[in-house]
């Protein structure tokens, strides 16, 4: 992919110009669907935008020294990484890409979570440190399953190129892998039942306890962009490309919306689990499931090789 295409993908579609309104829209869908499930009316359509602008206009506490600089840097790193991850999604057919961009996408998806851990520890608040420790434990638990699922999908189609994965027809094994990814998404997005790191009221606001104003606005934005990137990743893996780009875009948005709705309903219907239950869930039940998919994939690949 040349520089112009790369910049267009990062800045226009599916990058920042599309992803930021989409992030606000998904944040609204999350809150609104929870409200509807609880028989409330819920926030107005523009609510995430109002919150964002209001936070930009608030003052921030003075932060001195390298620790303060780091605290200001983490949200910006998280937003850039999440925006980059959205920019890599192959929404349009034949929009370019390179061998191994799936690995880059996974790395970029992981950076916001690492930033949250680092931000909690650099803010030196007790509650933030507890939140960061929880986030670290959670991240280690779900990432094994998440990476195994992605690896099995890539292995079943013999490529680490997103463009190629999006064009090939979907095998039944890939759907199993996608299911494993969807199981990991609530933990990745810190929503119920795995909202341990930012457990509201329980440990104040978790790693973001000390953040205020524009920095907090950046965290909200990075959270929204993570929604877009994760839902978009599932949408690109689940639905193969059609011929025309307009249909592709519509299907991408519709499938992402469906995934956001599914996760929000799950969040509204469940309560927060304790850390040991969460870790046990990922290390015991889901890991066995992911290993099973991996074994199935490898054996089916070997089987087809032997046959040919």
């Amino acid at each position: 992919m040349n520089l112009t295409v790369a910049l267009a993908r990062l800045l226009i579609f599916p990058g920042i110009l599309f992803a930021v309104p989409a992030a606000w829209f998904f944040l609204w869908v999350e809150r609104k669907s929870v409200a509807l499930m609880q028989e409330r009316i819920g926030p107005p359509f523009m609510q995430p935008f109002f919150d964002f602008v209001k936070l930009l206009g608030k003052t921030t506490p003075v932060r001195n020294g390298p620790g303060g600089l780091l605290m200001q840097a983490w949200p910006l790193v998280a937003v850039s990484a999440a925006a980059g991850a959205v920019g890599l999604l192959p929404v349009l057919p034949s929009s370019g890409g390179f061998e191994g961009d799936l690995i880059l996408l996974l790395a970029l998806l992981e950076i916001p979570s690492i930033c949250i851990i680092a931000a909690g520890f650099s803010s030196r608040s007790l509650f933030a440190e507890i939140g960061s420790a929880r986030e670290a434990v959670l991240s280690v638990s779900y990432n094994v399953v998440f990476l195994l699922a992605i690896l099995s999908i890539a292995a079943s189609q013999h490529t680490f190129r997103l463009e190629a994965l999006a064009q090939l027809p979907v095998s039944p094994l890939r759907y199993l892998g996608i299911l494993a990814i969807v199981v990991c998404l609530p933990a990745k997005l810190h929503i119920n039942p795995f909202s341990l790191p930012n457990a509201e009221q329980e440990i104040y606001s978790g790693p973001l306890t000390e953040y205020a104003g524009a920095e907090l606005a950046m965290w909200e934005l990075s959270h929204g962009l993570e929604w877009v990137a994760s839902a978009g990743l599932v949408a690109t893996l689940a639905i193969p490309h059609f011929a025309s780009w307009s249909v592709d875009v519509l299907v991408f948005v519709a499938v992402s919306f469906g995934i956001v709705l599914l996760l929000s309903v799950l969040a509204a219907a469940t309560a927060r689990l304790a850390i040991d239950t969460t870790v046990r869930f990922y290390w015991q039940c889901t890991l066995i499931f992911a290993c099973l998919i991996m074994v199935l994939t490898i054996s089916s690949t070997l089987f087809t090789r032997v046959q040919s």
Binding site: A35, R40, G42, K58, Q201, G206, L208, Y211
Partner: peptide
């Protein structure tokens, strides 16, 4: 709660005073 639903006005109960208005 659902009966009065202050979230219609954009109200959100925050865990940290740093986030509050």
């Amino acid at each position: 709660t659902p009966r009065y639903d202050a979230e219609q006005l954009g109200v959100r109960l925050q865990g940290s005073p740093r986030h509050a208005d």
